[in-house]
Structure formats: structure tokens, C-alpha cells
Write a protein that binds this DNA or RNA. Structure first.
Lengths: 377, 377
DNA sequence: ACATGGTGTGAGACCGGTATCATTAGCTTT
DNA sequence: AAAGCTAATGATACCGGTCTCACACCATGT
């Protein structure tokens, strides 16, 4: 087409015009209700009623419109429909990392549940960065999503989510809870689960237990608890410290190892754990990526579980069932997290205006084979 | 206005009117360009030019509009924008199962690449069912997505994808190839990889090698190759049969075990493999779910790898690096699959009209520890 | 003084649906 | 037969943007 325009500028040749017309007709996109109406020789309003399935229409009108519609291959345009109704059948989902089975399982739960309610989902990755999360919320709101399901990166910075709420877009948080935010939240038993694990370990004689997590801080040290953005991480560390203190361990903060953000970092954490004095006899891994890495490090160093070291990981990932012995895990049924989150969102979309609620999904300890008696001396 | 009519019909009470009116003003959704224009005391066209970042506007106009915009908290409506431009910033992705790391990794690759081009993605799960895939394509086209990335469930039934193409929506297939479809495809080296694995095994003395895959057929038997819907499965089985035949194995079809669709089914396949005569000395698992299940079955039966049995799985999943020995795998870098797919789609969206092409991503054999000499007798 | 040209602006059509209202046709009611 | 009612239909405003076009304005050139 641009070519033709150029031709017109150069000379007065008339041929190009004709070609233009034919190109126009060629690029005629999909037929609209108006086209169908014309074909069926009824008004646009009648065609729209039949095709949209609203209002009333006679059987004869219905027949003639439907015939015209599939003669033309009519496909409704949901964009236009959303615009005129104000409703959009899309739900925005923001997770830290879809590649992580923890989240991809949750997404599957969300997807299956939304589908049943005729909703689709737009997925976004925050990479656990607040700035990206803020950006994606904005993008999703511009798309006028019907609702949002978010795993908020920082429970203290939720203004972007608040804004969504006041604009009338329901929000449900998943895996994490932001008390400031008047939104439903679906969480695991973060505090309880760590208590359960520690009780079990202490029953087996463990005193010095390490907790390994991915959190980063400026100085690499565990600072004030209130400064931890991800609520699930904060709750578990708080539970860890509290429980260890109650058990009479002196400086429990020294046993919370943070910064296991990647493979190399986790390796160095494991080294520090093995060199720790007094000796550490059990390791808790806050997610399955860290768990897998810790397990490999321990095996590589020739340690056998649970004789030389006990290990408990969070999340029942595939890998934790193929090792020998199988790994003891805190089972976080994230598919259910997703299901519940989607259910709550749907309820909100259907007008449920009850006060926001925190739903806690049970996360039991599956003790398989990596909790043994504490190695003494 | 409508309110008055209703009120008049019911009674002469004026209160309802007020209430309705307040509700009206309350439900006033986010401000529009028209609102901003009014606030800035310019025309709608000028406000639109400034806010939409197109056309020309004087600095003074720009300033006054921007000020009005953030005084009102203006948020553009991408729905409306898409409708009037015809472009939508959404790409539809249809995979078999997001919960599967194979696909979730690919989705991450797609997501990261699309993001850089300012596109978002709508995810759908086909559950490897053609009917669902057809339905989702239709839903996505109704949403007027800019393009589609699909792992087609059945390479022989792609009319719904063809329809998308003729309607002008570019399509890229991932992991699978449908020759009938004039679309770019991103695949692994299905045929080559199985040849490579078999050569390696045959070099180690293996003759009777089993290939285990998830495909279902009506009678549970491997029928004609042309009847296999998923191209990657077909290619690999074809490669398997061909290579085995060349190596002088009599009825290679007896060594292709299909129907490993779930845990129980895989267990029964393993039983049949272990009871097979002549004895089978190596197992190939067509994906990581099957691989993990086969591995567990073998361990549970007290077999040790690779002494009693050799094992090669497709896809380098987390679990295959934590077993001892580590599993030899055909590495399918699905993140790259996704990246490449997104790149091709973006190219198409930018007008690339070159003939569709098949891109083959190298899928090398990572021989770690589960290929040993064939157990004799 | 008058044609030329470029810049900035406003009016309004348009995208493809939904939703409101007026109108007509067909039928009952008294 | 006139009035009343409902079912079916058509005309048209509207959602919130984009985009075309006409026009007003001011600076040049001759």
C-alpha cells in the first residue's frame, strides 16, 4: 500500500488506485454484527440481539441471522464487548517466577478454577522485584482486568494494589499476606509449620538447627524482622527465632542463614553451616530450589542423610521423592492455594462484599526419611 | 434520567432520585481523555495527542494536559486503544500443561522475550485435548490477540490454527510441527536425539532397548505412525523404530511402550518391561514425568542403575540431578524454545513475511551416570 | 500585498459491540 | 371499533480511545 502512495506522488497513473481498492477489500478483517445484519437483511440491533444472546428475537429472525452469521464466518469481538459492557473476562496473575513449580502449580489451580467460570488469565512474572510488580499491576489495570491475583513481593509496599482496590478491581494475595491491604489472602501455615518441624527435630535430639532462605539484605545479615518484605519469609523466620529461643538456644539469629539466592550462594551457605560451631545437625530449606541445592551439596561432600545430617525442605517437589532416602518436606499444596485464590476472586466478582479474610491452607510435615537422631559429638 | 421514569411509575417520592444520582456519581469509573481535556480546557483531540503520545502538541498544551491528567489520576484504557487501533498487546499461549516444568520453562522464555517487546501473554492449558485447544484458540481470537504460540495437540487437526492465520493472526508452534500449517515452528532434534541415544547405548552393548511414552491409543497398541497426533512423539517413535530395525532388532514395535499417561500406568509399563523376553537392558523415558516414575519404580524394586538397567530421560528436570547416580538426559532447553518462539512471533508482528520456517534447537545427550554396559544374561 | 508553507488545534467520524427508547404489528379486551 | 397490551424490530447513543481532516495562525518569500 505504501508503495502505491509513492507511485501516486511520482506520477498521475490511475492504476494504483484500483489496486488500493482491491487491497482494502482484501484486508477487510472479520465481519461485524453490522455485516451480518446487512447480509440477513435485518437491523443491526436485531442481529446484535441474536448474536449476543440478549433481549428477545423471533425464531425467524434468529434463524436468518444465524445463517447469515455462519455464511460470513462471524466471530464476536470480545474487546468491543468488554468495552461497551465494562466487564472484561480476564484476570491478571502476578507471581514471582512461573518457572518455579511452587508457582506453576498454583497457576494451574488458578487456571482450572477460572476456566470453569469462563475467565481467562494473563500471567506476569515479577521476578520478585517490587518495581516490576508495580509496573505489571499498572499494565494489567490498563487492560481493565476483572481482578488480580498477586504474590506480593513486599508486604509493606502495596499502594499499587490498594489503588487497584479503590478503583474497584478485586485483589487476592497468594502465599503472602499484607495486613495493610484490605484483600483476601491465601497462605500456608508458615509460623505453625516451622514450629511443627522444630518440635519434631528437637524430639529427635536436635538443638542446633539451621534455617536457609533466599532473602537478600544489604549487609548480608539478618536485620529487623519488620524489614523483611515477603510475609511468608518473615513469618517463618519469626517462628524459627521464637521457637529456638524457647528451646533455650542462645543466638538463634546466627542459625538463620539468608542470601541463598542462587546455586553458588547456596553452596557457600552450606559450607558455612558445615563449619559452624557448635555443630549444626539439621538443615531446613525454605523452598524446593534451595532444598535441592543443599541436598546435592551434602551428597557431593559424601554426607549421608539422615545419619550425618537431617534435612527438611518446604514444598513437595518432584525431586524430593526420587532421592534415597526420600526427603522430609513441609507439603505446600499450591494447586489448592491457587484454587482457593481463584474461588475468592470469583466470589468478589460476583459481588461478595464481606470483610476480607485470611485463608490458611494446612501445610503438614511429610516425614519421609531425612529426619534422623541428632548426630552427637 | 431513567430514574425519574421509574420513580414516576412507582410513586411521587423524590428521595430515590437522589440516592440513584449519588450512586451514579459514585460508580464514576476512572477518568477518560474527555475528562482530562475538560479539566485542562483543551479539546479532546489535543488531550488525546498528548496522552497517547502521537501527533504534535505545543509544550504549553503538553504541560497543561499532563497536569490535568495527574490531578485526575488518569489511567489510559488499553481496551479502548486496542479497539480503535486494531492492535492488541496480548499474545495467546496454549500449552499442554503449565504445571509441567517442560512447559513452564518455555513459558518463562516466552514471557521474558515478549516483555521486552511490550507484549503481555494470556496463558491457556489444553490438557493435551484437541477439543479444549480448539475452544481456547477461539476464545483467544475473540480477545483479538496479536498472535498465538501453541504446542498443538494434534498435528493433523490444525484447521483452527489455519483459520487464525488466514484471519491475519500470526501463529508459531512450539515443541511440535504441523507441516500442513504455514507457520513457524520451534522444535527439538526429536529424530536425531533418539538416534544419538541409541547409538550410544548400542555402543555399550545394548540391543533390547525400551522406549516409554505417554501416548494413548484406542486399543493400547502402537498403530500406524501417521495416526500419532503429537509430532514430537511421532518423530521420536519413527526414529526409534528405524534405528532399531537398522540395528537388526526384529520387532522394534514391541519395544515401544505407550500409554504411560499417569503414575499407575507407568508402573504397569515398568512391570511389563521387566518381564519382557528377551530381557530389556535399557529404558528411554520420553519426558521427565515418566522418567521420574520409572526411576522410582526401578529403585523400589531394588534395581541399581546403571548396573541392572540403563536409563535415559528426555528433559533435564530438577530431579534428574539429585539422584545417585545422576540421570543421563536428552537436554531440551525449553526456555530457549520459548525465547525463539517469541522472537519469531515478534518478527511476524513486525511484518516479516518470509516463508514459514522450522527452527530446530539442539537437544544434546547429557550422559551423566545411568548409561552402563548392557547386563548380559 | 499576496501566495506559500508549516505548526498547532478542534470537530467529529470511527472501531464493534451493548443498551435504551420509540415504533410498529398483532392480538386481546370491553 | 376503539383502547390496551405485548412481542418484535429499528434507530441511535454510548463505551474510550485513535485518527483524519479542516482551519486558524504566524512566519517566509517575492
Amino acid at each position: 500500500m505504501y508503495v502505491l502512495i509513492r507511485v501516486n506522488r511520482i506520477a498521475k497513473d490511475f492504476e494504483p488506485e484500483k489496486i488500493e481498492v482491491s487491497e482494502m477489500s482484501e484486508k477487510s478483517s472479520s465481519p461485524t454484527v453490522a455485516d451480518v445484519a446487512r447480509e440477513a437483511k435485518v437491523s443491526k440491533a436485531t442481529a446484535a440481539r441474536v448474536l449476543g444472546g440478549y433481549g428477545i428475537a423471533s425464531d425467524s429472525a434468529r434463524r436468518v441471522v444465524m445463517e447469515a452469521a455462519d455464511r460470513l464466518g462471524y466471530q464476536p469481538n470480545d474487546l468491543a464487548r468488554s468495552m461497551s459492557t465494562g466487564r472484561s473476562g480476564l484476570v491478571g496473575v502476578i507471581v514471582g517466577d512461573i518457572e518455579n513449580a511452587f508457582f506453576s502449580q498454583a497457576v494451574r489451580g488458578i487456571s482450572d478454577t477460572l476456566r470453569a467460570a469462563d475467565l481467562n488469565l494473563i500471567i506476569s512474572n515479577s521476578s520478585e522485584r517490587l518495581s516490576e510488580e508495580v509496573e505489571m499491576v499498572s499494565v494489567l489495570l490498563r487492560q481493565r482486568v476483572a481482578g488480580l491475583i498477586v504474590a506480593p513481593t513486599d508486604s509493606r509496599h502495596v499502594n499499587h494494589l490498594k489503588a487497584a482496590l479503590v478503583a474497584g478491581t478485586p485483589v487476592v494475595t497468594i502465599d503472602r499476606h499484607a495486613p495493610e491491604l484490605a484483600a483476601d489472602a491465601i497462605c500456608g501455615e508458615d509460623r505453625e509449620s516451622i514450629g511443627r518441624v522444630l518440635s519434631r527435630l528437637q524430639g529427635a535430639g536436635h538443638r542446633h538447627v539451621a534455617y536457609v532462605t533466599a532473602m537478600e539484605t544489604r549487609d548480608g545479615k539478618l536485620g529487623r524482622l519488620e524489614d523483611i518484605g515477603i510475609s511468608a519469609v518473615r513469618e517463618r523466620i519469626a517462628g524459627f527465632l521464637e521457637h529456638m529461643r524457647e528451646a533455650g538456644v542462645e543466638n538463634p539469629a546466627d542459625l538463620a542463614f539468608i542470601g541463598a539466592t542462587g546455586d553458588d550462594e547456596t553452596t557457600s551457605v552450606v559450607t558455612r553451616i558445615l563449619e559452624h560451631s557448635p555443630p549444626i545437625t539439621a538443615i531446613l530449606a525454605s523452598d524446593s530450589l534451595i532444598g535441592a541445592r543443599v541436598f546435592r551439596e551434602l551428597s557431593d561432600r559424601g554426607l549421608s542423610l539422615p545419619q550425618d545430617m537431617s534435612l527438611v525442605s518446604w514444598f513437595d517437589a518432584d525431586w524430593s521423592r526420587v532421592t534415597s532416602p526420600r526427603i522430609s518436606v513441609v507439603d505446600q499444596p499450591t494447586y489448592q492455594f491457587g484454587q482457593k485464590a481463584a474461588e475468592r476472586l470469583i466470589a468478589r466478582l460476583q459481588g461478595d462484599a464481606s470483610p476480607p479474610k485470611l485463608f490458611v491452607i494446612p501445610t503438614p510435615l511429610l516425614d519421609r526419611g531425612t529426619i534422623g537422631p541428632a548426630k552427637t559429638g
